[in-house]
Amino acid sequence: MGNSKLYKGSLHTIILKLLEENGKMYGYEITQKVKEITNGELNITEGALYPALHKLEAEDLLDVEVAKVDNRLRKYYKLTEKGSKETVNKLKELENYIRNMQVLVNPNWSIE
């Protein structure tokens, strides 16, 4: 995708929002959900996803739960209480950013 750099700055917010909506998810599930929601427009690579998940975990925004599935260990990520609060903040920041970009790109377009 040509504009993947635009999404890169929003990756943490995307992850937090998905976990807010879905409770807990494992890495591959997150990548597939993003692909599904965006009709294949956004593909998150493992090389981008896992460092982001590890950073969010280190910031105490995510908890990790390990479960055995089909004789394999699977890491599930879920929001901590701090992560839930941060999700609200990140979504507000993103909404403000989008609003400002819309005004800059199309000044005649009014936003209610």
Rank of each mutant, 00 (worst) to 15 (best):
M1K: 11
M1V: 14
G2S: 14
N3P: 03
S4D: 15
S4N: 15
K5E: 11
K5F: 09
K5S: 11
K8S: 14
K8P: 05
L11E: 14
H12E: 11
T13I: 11
I14F: 07
I14C: 10
I15K: 10
I15N: 13
L16T: 09
K17D: 13
L18H: 06
E20R: 10
E20C: 04
E21S: 14
G23P: 04
M25N: 02
Y28S: 15
I30Y: 05
Q32I: 00
Q32F: 06
V34E: 07
K35V: 00
E36V: 00
I37M: 13
I37P: 11
I37G: 12
I37C: 13
T38W: 00
G40Q: 07
G40K: 07
N43H: 07
N43I: 12
I44K: 12
I44A: 08
I44S: 14
T45H: 15
G47E: 10
A48D: 15
L49I: 04
Y50V: 01
P51L: 05
K55E: 14
E57L: 14
A58D: 15
A58G: 15
A58Y: 14
E59T: 11
D60Y: 12
D60N: 15
D60C: 05
L61S: 11
L61A: 04
L62E: 13
L62F: 05
L62S: 05
D63A: 00
V64Y: 03
E65I: 00
E65Y: 00
A67C: 03
K68Q: 05
V69G: 03
R72E: 13
R72H: 14
R74W: 11
R74H: 09
R74E: 10
L79G: 04
T80R: 04
S84N: 10
K85C: 10
K85S: 12
K85E: 15
E86A: 06
E86L: 02
V88S: 06
N89Y: 06
K90L: 03
K90P: 01
E93S: 07
L94C: 02
Y97D: 07
R99S: 14
N100P: 03
M101S: 01
Q102L: 14
V103M: 11
V103N: 10
N106V: 02
P107K: 02
P107L: 02
S110W: 01
S110A: 05
E112W: 00
E112L: 08
E112D: 13
